[in-house]
Amino acid sequence: MPNQNGSVYGLTILSPIINDERATPSHDLQIRNYLATVPTGEGSPFALAPGTHLARLVVMDDVIYVGSPSIEEHLHSKYLVFESNCDGDLDSYLLGLATAVPQHLDAIWSHCVGYPGAANPQAFAAYMKACQIETTFYFAAVNDKSVPETLRALQTQRAVSDFIARHQGMNAALLQAEFAQFATRLKSEPLPASGSMGPLRGLKTGGRNE
């Protein structure tokens, strides 16, 4: 199934935006205005709801004319594109969004044709599926790990790096004891927040990267 790669799901949704000449500002602009205010870090609706690796929302104004001799044509509607790379089962994912962040979903999709609201998660999921386009080819660099597993692994990577640096040349018995404590402590640490930059480590980054 092209929407799925391993345990990761490639969701592509095109929701037609209400085309109302009397609306001021227009519905597409209202979506853009709202999206400009939504946090993109750990306060993001996609961080608060479970299961999103990466996601984007894009107002597609029109198709693009690539020049003569191709035909110039235009869409009747603008579309809100929702592209999400999420964990596993689509129904669980959509219901999870509707349950966790209904106010954000309503603020965004209420400008789209036929949107039923997120108060009824089943109706929300059915609406999203009606707007879904099947992905033709889907590539995922890591396709067998969930979001919590990946957040945990990144936390482990950082902790292991620090542990190794601090325990060089230590005698075997002490090393074994310290390692056992380290493993227990690491296991009990809370999962880092999705969308967060992680702890600041005081290392310098930067430079030309054009």
């Binding site: 939504v38 993001s44 996601a55 660099a141 990946t150």
Partner: peptide, 24 residues
């Protein structure tokens, strides 16, 4: 252009993710 973009791991690259799972 993209109007809104979220990643669960803004501090990590694709290689970081692969490496983190190897370390884990």
């Amino acid at each position: 252009d993209t109007d809104y973009y979220f990643t669960a791991y803004p501090h990590a690259t694709a290689n970081d993710l692969k490496s983190a799972h190897i370390v884990q």
